[in-house]
Write a protein that binds this DNA or RNA. Structure first.
Length: 274
DNA sequence: CCTCTATGGCGAA
DNA sequence: TCGCCCTAGAGGC
C-alpha cells in the first residue's frame, strides 16, 4: 500500500541487497512464471523508483538489459527478508532470491517484463517526482496554473507530480492551509511552490522512516500533552483518516468527503480557498 | 465465519 | 462515473 516513499525505499533496499549478484527469480503463484524463467540466473543490476513505479534491472550486457516494472497499486506489497522456503499455495507473484535474502511481491497492480525503451515511455508520462533530484517542478506548475480541476485532484494526478498519494495529498494541503477543492487556476505560484517544497521535505522523511509523519513538533504529543494519534499506516498525521476527530490545531472536527473515488480529509476552519 | 476497507489506476459505458 | 483488478488485515456476528 504505497505512495512514492515506499517505492523509493524499496529501490534502495533491493539495490543494497541484490545489485551485482546472480539471483534466482521465480513466480510461485504462476502469473509471472514465463518472465521469471527468463530472468532466473541473471545478474540483478539495480533498482530505481520513479513516482509509484519501481524498475528492477537484470542482465550483464546493456544491450540485452531487461527490467521488471512493478506498480504496487492499492494493495500490493513487496517485502525483503531472510530467504525461507515458499509455502504451498502462496500468492507470491514474484520472488527474487540470492540464497541469503529474498524479495517477495504479492498483489501488485503491475508486474511486467519491459525493455529500457518501454521504461522511458512509462516515465515520460509522469510528472516531476519530489523524491528525485532530476525533478523539474516547473512542469507541474504549468499544468496546475491552467487547470480548472481541484488542487486535490491535481496532486493525485501522476502526470502532475509523481509519487503523491492520498495521505501526502491530504496532509500537504493541511500543512499549507489550502482547501482541497481550490481550483488549480486559483493557486498562486508562490503557494504551489510551498506545496512542492513541503513535499520535498516530507517525502524523504517517509523514505527514511518507512512511514508518513506530517505533524509539526508544536502540534505533537510532546508539546500538547495529548496522546499520539498514530494511524494504521504507521504515522502521525493531521487529517488523514481522522474524520470526526478534533483538528490538532483548532479543534474543529475534521471533515471527510468522497471525491473522485477516494476519501478526502480536511479541516474546514484551517484550510481556506485562497 | 463473513464483510468491509485500503497509501491505486485502468478500461468500459 | 462506475466496475473491476490484485491481497491482507480489521472488525462484526
Amino acid at each position: 500500500m504505497p505512495e512514492g516513499h515506499v517505492t523509493h525505499r524499496l529501490a534502495g533496499e533491493l539495490t543494497a541487497a541484490f545489485a551485482g549478484s546472480v539471483v534466482r527469480v521465480s513466480s510461485p503463484q504462476g502469473r509471472f512464471a514465463e518472465a521469471a524463467a527468463l530472468l532466473d540466473g541473471q545478474v540483478l543490476t539495480g533498482a530505481e523508483a520513479y513516482g509509484k513505479n519501481l524498475f528492477i534491472g537484470f542482465g550483464s550486457d546493456v544491450n540485452t538489459e531487461l527490467l521488471v516494472h512493478v506498480h504496487l497499486g492499492l494493495i500490493g506489497k513487496l517485502r525483503l527478508g531472510p530467504a525461507v522456503p515458499v509455502a504451498a499455495g502462496d500468492t507470491l507473484r514474484l520472488r527474487i532470491d540470492n540464497g541469503e535474502q529474498a524479495a517477495e511481491l504479492r498483489g501488485p497492480q503491475t508486474c511486467a517484463l519491459i525493455t529500457p525503451a518501454e521504461q522511458a515511455g512509462v516515465t515520460a508520462a509522469l510528472g516531476p517526482d519530489p523524491l528525485r533530484s532530476d525533478a523539474a517542478m516547473a512542469s507541474s506548475w504549468a499544468r496546475v496554473s491552467r487547470s480548472d480541476r481541484a488542487v486535490a485532484s491535481l496532486l493525485m494526478d501522476q502526470r502532475v507530480c509523481a509519487g503523491v498519494g492520498n495521505i501526502y495529498r491530504c496532509e500537504v494541503l493541511f500543512r499549507q492551509r489550502l482547501h482541497p477543492l481550490t481550483p488549480g487556476r486559483e493557486v498562486t505560484r508562490r503557494r504551489w511552490n510551498r506545496i512542492w517544497t513541503d513535499l520535498t521535505t516530507l517525502m524523504p522523511l517517509g523514505v527514511r522512516d518507512g512511514r508518513i509523519d506530517t505533524v509539526l513538533p508544536e502540534h505533537g504529543p510532546d508539546a500538547t500533552g495529548r496522546a499520539p494519534r498514530v494511524d494504521r499506516h504507521g504515522g502521525e498525521v493531521y487529517v488523514y483518516r481522522r474524520a470526526g476527530q478534533p483538528c490538532l490545531v483548532c479543534d474543529r472536527l475534521v471533515s471527510v468527503q468522497d471525491f473522485e473515488a477516494r476519501h478526502l480529509f480536511w479541516c474546514g476552519r484551517c484550510q481556506r480557498r485562497r
